[in-house]
């Protein structure tokens, strides 16, 4: 391990991130868990859930959002999919020497507005400045506290469960990637950066017994399904023709050679519910803001040799693998 180093793909949310956590960070922390969950119950504080997230997105401003609102949505969404209504946030800014005040103002104004819209104000924070070159413009870390909703027991995946997605996938990753240096590519695809709490709330209001939820961020829908299948020792079959993808996003994925299943989202909810609840859950999601294009996209089965399978539109089938890490434009 002495000669091993961090490579970009360690931050991609895929298999390499998982390996870094399980083989290096968790043992070093002395954690008894094999995974650090996105959010956890506060020890000794029944009903309170705590989470944290760091944001290093480049560029800071992208179509459909910016690092400020994203830093709020990322954290409130981790709470929401843990079954907790967000209460309050903290925010830490790491600023690079030379950054314009105008940028700082725009980013924090966006974060403040997003936090208010989510009903989770930013109540504490910290600011540090590092010398030019020691950070890339601006990094943000947010932490959040939420209150567990008693109805959401989230007992876990079961054989026969249906998989739902709240809307078209892969928009965030494409919107951000298209504005990266070195990719000559403009798109009308906008990031889906948004809070998923209203979607969760709609499921609760409809009385759905949600078995499990996740927001498919880095690593996309593929990573979420791979993780759930592994955690519960079950298999998941997804149906390609049912998975919503905007035509412009599908075209952008073709241009960049990416699989939409592995591209990041920042405002989508993946929910697992019993088969008999699927129709009602779908109706609930479709009635909520941001859930208009929700769909039932797959089914949970007993464990087969392959954890996650995609039934393609030609009746073919293939594995869905946990993405490796960094999404790279594929060219040849």
């Amino acid at each position: 391990m002495a000669d091993e180093q961090i490579v970009m793909a360690h931050g991609g949310g895929g298999a390499l991130t998982h390996e870094l956590l399980t083989e290096t960070i968790l043992p070093a922390l002395g954690s008894s868990s094999y995974r650090l969950p996105d959010a956890a119950d506060l020890p000794g504080e029944a009903g309170l859930v705590f989470t944290t997230d760091a944001f290093v997105v480049k560029p800071l401003f992208f179509r459909g959002g910016d690092i400020g609102s994203l830093s709020v949505h990322g954290t409130v969404n981790d709470l929401a999919v843990s079954g907790a209504k967000p209460i309050a946030l903290t925010m830490t800014l790491v600023l690079e020497e030379g950054l314009s005040l105008e940028t700082v103002e725009a980013v924090t104004a966006s974060a403040g507005a997003a936090a208010r819209a989510c009903g989770a104000p930013i109540v504490a924070g910290d600011t540090k400045v590092v010398a030019r070159g020691e950070a890339d413009e601006l990094f943000i870390t947010t932490a959040g506290v939420g209150r567990r909703v008693p109805e959401l027991t989230l007992p876990g995946l079961r054989d026969g469960d249906r998989v739902l997605i709240s809307g078209p996938i892969a928009d965030h990753g494409i919107a951000v990637m298209s504005q990266r240096e070195g990719i000559d590519f403009q798109t009308r695809v906008r990031s889906d950066s948004a809070p998923v709490w209203p979607l969760v709330e709609a499921l609760v209001a409809a009385g759905i017994d949600v078995h499990a939820m996740r927001d498919p961020t880095r690593g996309g829908l593929a990573a979420v399904c791979a993780e759930f299948a592994e955690d519960y020792g079950l298999s998941i079959t997804l149906h390609e023709e049912d998975i919503p993808v905007r035509p412009e996003t599908a075209a952008a994925c073709s241009i960049l050679g990416l699989d939409p299943l592995t591209v990041a989202n920042e405002g989508k909810l993946t929910a697992f519910v019993a088969a008999e609840d699927a129709d009602r859950a779908l109706a609930a999601l479709r009635s909520a803001p941001g859930g208009e294009h929700a769909a039932v996209i797959g089914v949970v089965t007993a464990r087969r040799t392959v954890p996650v399978t995609l039934r393609t539109r030609f009746g073919g089938q293939r594995l869905v693998e946990m993405p490796y890490g960094e999404d790279l434009p594929r060219i040849c």
Binding site: P168, P244, V245, R246, P247, A251, S254, R313
Partner: peptide, 13 residues
């Protein structure tokens, strides 16, 4: 042909 996964919302555009 290329509509592929794009057909999920509102049919092929």
């Amino acid at each position: 042909l290329f509509a592929e996964m794009g057909e999920g919302i509102g049919g092929p555009a």
